[in-house]
């Protein structure tokens, strides 16, 4: 009885830890085989890069404008109108869009759209035994499949962050105009508050988000089990783990950035 209760509580935890460990190992393998010659993954890298852009540009456009207009735009404008300081909305958008929401929405969309597609694709190859066939043919699946996806997703997420940032700020402009305020003060406070630290922090952060998403989704795809539910279940787990991983990492990163670069907090 006690034994079975303990099993019920600990087995899932143990499995989870094992999986996290396996993902770490995959990360290590991916990085080392990305760096070591030969480099056969160029073509696949380009096609994955274009594939991710093709899938994500539209959902990301809708999501960032909607998010930027609603959450930081309307609500923060309401907040600032109370203090009679709507011109500060620009400054707020530095904090909101660059530091938080652009990376965050980019990560959600990339994990939900490109990540799930990667898991579904690799899962399909796994259960069609293509991965086994590759290994039999002497081709390393990590080097030829995981590495290009890993690099492509990192690059795409970093670039899309800037794209998301632009459209997020566009949402903010919409919100300012909705409130009937001129745009001049918005830009003024935006540029006085914007710092390069914020920008590189944001891009670095999203690049690492891309790495997390790629590893989680590749891992889940490559370990998809057979059976009718296998691939679907793999996608399900991949996206849940990717979300949790991205947000936990985001929290740690923001804390570290704020602690090590206190100057970005100084109001201007």
């Amino acid at each position: 009885m006690v034994r079975s209760v303990a099993d019920r509580a600990f087995l899932p935890t143990k499995n989870l830890l094992e999986e996290v460990g396996d993902m770490m190992i995959l990360t290590g393998k991916t990085i080392s085989s990305a760096l070591r010659p030969p480099y056969p993954y160029g073509g696949e890298f380009v096609s994955q890069f274009l594939f991710a852009i093709k899938l994500c540009w539209f959902p990301l456009l809708v999501s960032t404008v909607a998010f930027g207009f609603g959450a930081p735009g309307l609500q923060a404008a309401n907040f600032l109108v109370i203090f009679g300081a709507l011109d500060r909305l620009g400054g707020f958008f530095v904090l909101a869009s660059i530091r938080e929401f652009a990376p965050f929405v980019t990560a959600i969309v990339l994990a939900g759209v490109a990540g799930t597609a990667i898991t579904a694709d690799l899962g399909a190859r796994k259960i069609r035994e293509e991965l086994d066939a590759l290994q039999v043919l002497g081709v390393d699946p990590v080097k030829n499949l995981v590495v290009p996806r890993f690099l492509a997703l990192m690059l795409v997420t970093g670039l899309f962050n800037i794209y998301a940032l632009i459209f997020g700020v566009f949402g903010g402009i919409l919100a300012t105009l909705t409130n009937g305020a001129p745009l001049g003060p918005f830009w003024a406070t935006f540029f006085t508050n914007a710092s390069t630290t914020d920008l590189w922090g944001s891009v670095l952060k999203t690049t690492l988000f891309g790495a997390i998403i790629a590893i989680v989704c590749c891992y889940k795809g490559m370990t998809a089990s057979g059976g009718a539910e296998g691939v679907g279940r793999a996608v399900n787990q991949a996206v849940v783990i990717a979300f949790l991983g991205v947000f936990a990492f985001n929290y740690v990163f923001t804390q570290t950035l704020l602690a090590t670069h206190p100057e970005i907090l100084v109001p201007r």
Binding site: A66, F69, G112, G226, A228, G230, V231, A234
Partner: peptide
């Protein structure tokens, strides 16, 4: 087949993300 289920799962996520943002706004 199982591959189709995986693809459908991925597709549903795309639509859901867009819908969640639109509803939020």
């Amino acid at each position: 087949g199982p591959v189709g289920v995986g693809t459908a799962t991925a597709k549903s996520m795309v639509l859901n993300i867009v819908m969640v943002h639109l509803i939020g706004m």
